[in-house]
C-alpha cells in the first residue's frame, strides 16, 4: 500500500490485514515498553492544516511507538490562504526528505492532490467532508473487538452525514466488511445524491432502535444550525438525538459509538455517553494500534503480508544500540513537543 487516501481504494482483504496487524500492535501496547523498532529511521511528518487534538496525538503516538522520527508541520489552514500553492507546500516538506506525510486539511481532496506532487507516502488524517479512513478503521476495529466480525451486523449512522468525512469512510468500510448500513437524519443533512451508496435511509430513528447492533452518532456542528439546516438544537435532540429514553430501547448488547468530541445533550445525552454500551473511549484507544498498522503498511518493509512476528525478527540484528536510541529518541521527542 503506497498511500491511504480513501477507504474506496482498499479491498476487503486489505482492510482485514490492516485490522489483523493492528491486533498484533495492540498486544505490544500492553508491554512495559510499548515501543517497537519497526519504523526506525523513517521520518513521518504530521501536516495538520486544520486543528485536531485527538487524531494528531494518536498519529504522533503511533509513529513514535514504531520508533519513527516525527515532525510536526503546523501550517494552519492559512498557509494556502497566504497564496502559497498546495504544491509548493508539499514540495517544501518533501524536500526535507520525509517518508510519509500524514495530512489533515479542511478541504476535501487535498490528500488525493498531494499524491500527484510527492514521492512520500500520503496518509489521510481527514479531508473536508470527504474521508477519514483511519477513523473508519479504528471504528471497525472496535466493532470487531465486540462482535468478532461485522458480517450481517446492522449499523445505523445518525446525524450530519453530508458534512461528515467519518460517515463517508464508515459507509464504505462497514459495507465492505459485510455490515448493513442505515443512514438516519433529516434530508438537509443527507448528501444530495446517494447514487452508488450501498445504504438504506430511515428518517425515523425510533423504528431502528430495537433492531440495530451499532448506533453510531455524528457530531452536530453549530455551523449547521446557523446555515438553517435544522430549526434548533432542542428539535434536533428530540428527533435525532440518543436520549436516555431512546437508549432504553436499544438492545442490551448494542454498541453506542461516536467519533468525538461529543456534544452531550445534543446528539447524545450525558447519561447515555456513560452507558456501559457506549464504547467511545475504546474507539479512542483503538486509534493508536490501528494507526501503527496503517503507518507500518505504507512504510514497512514487508507490505501487507508481513505478520508482526516478521517485523520483530527483521529488527533483531539492530537491537544492540536500542537503549541509547530510546534515550535519544526520548530527548528528541521532548524537544519537538517543546517547539509546539
Amino acid at each position: 500500500m503506497k498511500n491511504l487516501v480513501t477507504i474506496a481504494d482498499l479491498s476487503r482483504g486489505e482492510i482485514e490485514q490492516i485490522l489483523d496487524l493492528a491486533e498484533s500492535f495492540a498486544e505490544t501496547q500492553t508491554r512495559a515498553i510499548p515501543k517497537v523498532p519497526a519504523l526506525r529511521g523513517k521520518t513521518v511528518v504530521l501536516a495538520f492544516f486544520e486543528d485536531s487534538t485527538r487524531t494528531r496525538t494518536s498519529f504522533d503516538l503511533a509513529a513514535r511507538r514504531l520508533s519513527a522520527d516525527v515532525v510536526n508541520f503546523s501550517a494552519g489552514s492559512s498557509a494556502t490562504n497566504k497564496g502559497e500553492s498546495l504544491r509548493d507546500t508539499v514540495e517544501t516538506i518533501s524536500a526535507m526528505g520525509v517518508d510519509a506525510i500524514v495530512v489533515r486539511h479542511a478541504s476535501s481532496g487535498v490528500p488525493s492532490q498531494l499524491t500527484q506532487w510527492t514521492e512520500a507516502a500520503i496518509v489521510n488524517a481527514g479531508d473536508g467532508w470527504h474521508q477519514h479512513p483511519t477513523q473508519a478503521l479504528l471504528d471497525a476495529y472496535t466493532i470487531r473487538q465486540r462482535f468478532g466480525s461485522l458480517d450481517g451486523r446492522k449499523i445505523a449512522i445518525c446525524g450530519d452525514i453530508n458534512h461528515s468525512r467519518v460517515a463517508r469512510s464508515n459507509v464504505q468500510l462497514f459495507t465492505k466488511l459485510g455490515a448493513e448500513v442505515i443512514l438516519v437524519g433529516p434530508r438537509t443533512l443527507l448528501p444530495p445524491s446517494l447514487a452508488g451508496w450501498p445504504v438504506k435511509v430511515e428518517p425515523d430513528i425510533d423504528v431502528l432502535l430495537p433492531e440495530i447492533d451499532v448506533a453510531y452518532f455524528l457530531r452536530i456542528q453549530q455551523e449547521r444550525l446557523s446555515d438553517g439546516l435544522f430549526p434548533s438544537v432542542r428539535e434536533y435532540r428530540s428527533l435525532y438525538g440518543l436520549t436516555l429514553d431512546r437508549s432504553h430501547r436499544l438492545r442490551p448488547d448494542a454498541l453506542i459509538m461516536h467519533p468525538g468530541p461529543m456534544n452531550r445533550g445534543v446528539e447524545i445525552d450525558a447519561q447515555v455517553a456513560d452507558d456501559p454500551r457506549a464504547v467511545v473511549l475504546n474507539q479512542v484507544s483503538s486509534g493508536v494500534p490501528v494507526r501503527m498498522a496503517v503507518l507500518y503498511s505504507v512504510l514497512g518493509p514487508g507490505q501487507f503480508d508481513t505478520k508482526f512476528e516478521a517485523i520483530e525478527a527483521a529488527s533483531l540484528p539492530e537491537r544492540q544500540p536500542t537503549k541509547n536510541l530510546v534515550g535519544e529518541d526520548y530527548v528528541a521527542d521532548k524537544q519537538v513537543k517543546g517547539d509546539r
Binding site: 476535501s108 470527504h130 453530508n162 468525512r165 444530495p192 446517494l194
Partner: peptide
C-alpha cells in the same frame, strides 16, 4: 452523485 461522493 459526484459532489456527494467527493464531499464537495
Amino acid at each position: 452523485e459526484w459532489s456527494s461522493r467527493l464531499g464537495l
